[in-house]
Amino acid sequence: MNPAIGFASMIAALSAVILGAFLTWALMPLLRRYALARPNARSSHKVPTPQGAGIAVIGATLVVATCALGPTAPALQALLPLFAATIVIGIVGAVDDIRPIPVLPRFALQALCVGAVVLTLPSDQQIIPALPLWLERAALLIGGLWFVNLVNFMDGLDWMTVAETLPVTLALVVFGLIGALSESPALLAAALGGAMLGFAPFNRPGAAKVFLGDVGSLPIGLLLGWCLLQLALQGHSAAALLLPLYYLADSTLTLLRRMLRRERFWMAHRSHFYQRATDNGFPVREVVGQVCLLNLALAALAGASIALRSTVVDILLLGIGSVLVAVVLRRFARPRI
């Protein structure tokens, strides 16, 4: 156990809750004026609602993480490429929220941000040492770009990103406390989880006053992806897969299904399993509640993987996690009884 990380994480999380809530509240008038999301055929909301609270969430996360690590600390200096990429990808999302950017330029800018993070990883850090470094880095670039976008795709219901982010960041903090994750990603996860908790009261299902917007979901995907990558680089690849398994499954299966149907898969839609659940009669609170409970179960499996450290056990735990995810997806895809 590392009580120093535990105390610092607690202070970071509490500070981010307060700062995230304050910034969200302070930005509301500006967002109502310039960033109003109007309902359309693909929307889950029924009335015009401001979007862009991701500015508050990401701002609080970066400020608190910087203070927690220390402005002159070597650990913070190593995170500067990540923070710079987070800000740039957030700007891309903010512009897209107000005036949509064409697919290819948007994708290229996202790839630039993810690539900057991947290319600045230390050359002696690899998940699979047997692979050539260039091949693993290329795979990380593709995987990171997909992860950033899938977090954006899955941000389609009130509290959905909250239901994903809070269990994952809580697990990452616990892993830091027991020494399975280094200090920097643990504190960053604490700050991000706290900021999301501060945003949550403004995004309650049925009474949402504001949405994250792409300015929030894209950088959240980048920060979460980096934290999960650090977990994998420290030898816990199975845990790093288990934590976001629901998001990975819902988004990837939906993409493959749309591609097989020869749909324009790059266009906005509402055919994700969680969206189909609301069309099938599930209340939004029930959907996000089930996702949150599933993520807590996946976090417990990830913890078991770290504690037991066995390849055979990892395969078993990934199988159990896949079954749990499949049960929820199957339920979402059918009419509510």
Rank of each mutant, 00 (worst) to 15 (best):
I128F: 06
S9V: 05
D314V: 12
A163K: 01
I101S: 13
A171M: 05
I98A: 15
G213Y: 10
L104N: 14
P50M: 03
R33I: 13
G20R: 02
T169N: 00
H269L: 06
A26N: 04
N2E: 06
W134A: 09
D279Y: 11
I55F: 00
F282G: 07
P3D: 02
R258H: 02
L188V: 08
L301H: 05
L222S: 14
P335M: 01
T278G: 07
L170F: 11
L248R: 14
G93W: 01
P129V: 07
T72R: 09
L245W: 13
S217I: 02
G281W: 00
L231H: 13
L316H: 08
L229W: 11
I5D: 00
T311A: 12
G143W: 01
A297G: 15
A108N: 07
V103G: 08
L192V: 11
E263T: 09
G54P: 08
R336T: 15
V117Y: 02
L62S: 04
V95L: 15
G319V: 10
V47K: 14
E263H: 07
N40V: 08
A268E: 15
L317M: 06
V288D: 01
P219T: 06
F211S: 06
W25F: 12
L298W: 00
L62D: 03
A8E: 08
A139K: 00
L316K: 14
F153T: 05
D155T: 04
A41W: 10
S123P: 11
R261I: 11
T165A: 07
L243D: 14
A232I: 12
F202A: 04
W25G: 07
L157P: 02
T24W: 00
V148M: 15
L135S: 10
T165E: 01
L294P: 14
M267N: 11
D158M: 00
A94K: 01
R204S: 04
L293P: 13
W266V: 02
D97Q: 09
P50F: 05
G289R: 11
E286N: 05
I320G: 12
W226D: 13
T61K: 09
P129E: 02
I91H: 03
V210K: 06
T165C: 13
S44W: 04
R38P: 01
A240R: 00
V168N: 10
